[in-house]
Design a protein around this nucleic acid. Structure first.
Lengths: 328, 328
DNA sequence: ATGAAAGCGCTAACAT
DNA sequence: ATGTTAGCGCTTTCAT
């Protein structure tokens, strides 16, 4: 029996007689033989690998994305490379180049690269952007502007008239989306707002930033705070507890992302749930589509819905007298 | 100029005249040329990749491990494959086989595979175990037994005489280590203890398990609880807050792992800090050592120290009268 | 110090 | 339906 027949039994089963194929597969199983992917890739030009690059492997938001991406990839019998861009554009670029030949495509999560660079990346590999949208590139984004609108509406319905947004990194696409949503929703529901921050510390937007911003939030006199993400929100919550400020009696708090942490803190955090696992899956999905269709066709952009999860950190605003008392 | 010279410029720079090499490298840089790793691997037998398999990508403990592993690998210009074993032994085995040809080595984190299987895995690829020790296999373990001792000593010094351990999965190596440490420390410090659980729900030992165990903990009459991990501890904390039980006034709580969450909850959790990022780095380190030395030499086993981090969930036990009151 | 050539494990034409 | 063969991009003898 020739090597070609064996090869065909794996790659084009139909092209081989049933009996032969079964014999091949049986022996292969016994020998634990599996075609060497590297060698296969050398000739087919496809590696069977995808890469996922995130800005920070320490950030829970990306864990969920990674989990989704890995699961989806595995279902298609693809393996996934991960890399941590360390919040650095240049490291991210190096990573892309290092991966280039080893993968069929790359999912770039919340890329720190400038738009121009993103637009000019050459394929292969095919790249799919997550939480970023740039002309000519396939992408998956989460509708966080709408999430913000839901949050503001919720606050307005509770009676809040004045809120503050603790902003994330100014250049961040997601942050811009959220601010846009805020502007629109605030106008629609007649609530005033103020923006604090950005609060990005080293290593991304973190808990500590929230801790440090809590008092500034109090000083604004707002009755509700919307945080750029859950980590910041929980930081605020933590400092508020130290300060003895009641949540939500004295101040309502809303987060973003709905990372597992959000449900675990006391009181459980009201937050805008972003479908992160699904976003990871969708990104790989779009990647596969694109791999199939070729880079000639128009790249798709998928938008996933956000959903407000009301837990226990939001409630009616305090009565005026009480606030006035506090502020002195 | 021949391909051989180019190849040598990259792989054995010394074997090529300075002038030639520089010329090669210059042109390569200009063309963004990099040797194709797959093709190289085909002939050298080394891929330049390592695999990391974790039981659950959703578990914060493993994020830290992954972060460390990725960082260490990247420093050596290795790329890393990740895969999620989904807490399943068979999936884990499949993953190992799928990776086999694509990596030089695999880091197996808290493997769910039985010892016999682990011992009989064939190399290549070289495997390094994390949080598991089996004869003949290289491994990195964290001294969680000692961490447990530190925790018990701390409680004993505060005056606690009766505590309860909320156990993790019975078959888990780490869990066994912790129980062993507990037994020894309890005897040394004359502390009585009781074991509750195991509490493993679907998807590992989680927050929810803690929530569900909190009341059982109260019923034991113990003045302190040691949880298998931080997730469980935080679950207990959360339920306790709902129940209006003061921590640490009425009950002290100690976690394990020191995941970021531990510092973020209110009150901040006293916990045994395990050097997870370093464990990830160490595992890849050991892997590289082994790759260099060949599988003939005796496999090393590295043990990393644990350290108790005292935050705000531990304090002196309540006075008897108060407890007696509570229990009726 | 450099080049020529074999061959790593596989797939894809092209025979038969 | 199966076999033969070229060659993917590299490294590594073996010559020179």
């Amino acid at each position: 029996m020739s090597v070609a027949t064996v090869s065909r039994s794996f790659t084009v089963p139909a092209s081989v007689a049933n009996a032969t194929r079964e014999r091949v597969l049986a022996v292969a199983a016994e020998l634990h033989y599996e075609p060497n992917r590297a060698a296969r890739g050398l000739i087919t030009g496809r590696t069977g690998n995808v890469g996922v690059i995130v800005p920070d492997l320490g950030n829970p938001y990306f864990h969920a994305v990674l989990k989704g991406a890995q699961a989806r990839a595995r279902r298609a019998d693809y393996a996934v490379f991960v890399a941590d861009g360390q919040e650095s554009a240049s490291e991210e670029e190096d990573l892309i180049n290092a991966m280039r030949k080893q993968v069929d495509g790359i999912v770039l999560c919340s890329s720190r690269l400038p738009t121009a660079k993103l637009a000019s990346l050459d394929n292969p590999p095919t790249v799919v952007l997550l939480n970023r949208r740039v002309a000519g590139r396939a992408s998956v984004v989460v509708d966080s502007a709408d999430g913000m609108k839901q949050a503001v509406r919720h606050l307005a319905e509770l009676g809040h008239r004045r809120c503050v947004f603790v902003s994330g990194p100014r250049r961040s696409w997601s942050n811009q989306q959220r601010q846009q949503g805020l502007r629109a929703a605030a106008r629609a529901h007649r609530v005033e707002y103020e923006i604090l921050g950005p609060v990005a510390g080293a290593g991304g937007v973190q808990f500590q930033s929230g801790v440090e911003t809590a008092e500034q939030v109090l000083e604004t006199g707002a009755t509700a705070v919307l945080a750029y993400n859950d980590l910041v929100a929980v930081g605020i919550l933590s400092r508020l507890a130290e300060l003895g400020v009641g949540v939500p009696e004295e101040l309502s708090v809303v987060g973003f992302d709905d990372i597992p942490l959000a449900a675990m803190v006391t009181p459980p955090l009201t937050t805008v749930s972003l479908p992160t696992v699904q976003a990871g899956e969708a990104a790989v999905d779009v990647l596969f589509e694109r791999l199939r269709s070729g880079d000639s066709v128009q790249p798709t952009s998928r938008k996933l819905p956000a959903e407000l999860i009301v837990r226990s950190t939001t409630g009616p605003p305090p009565r005026r007298a009480k606030r006035a008392l506090r502020s002195h």
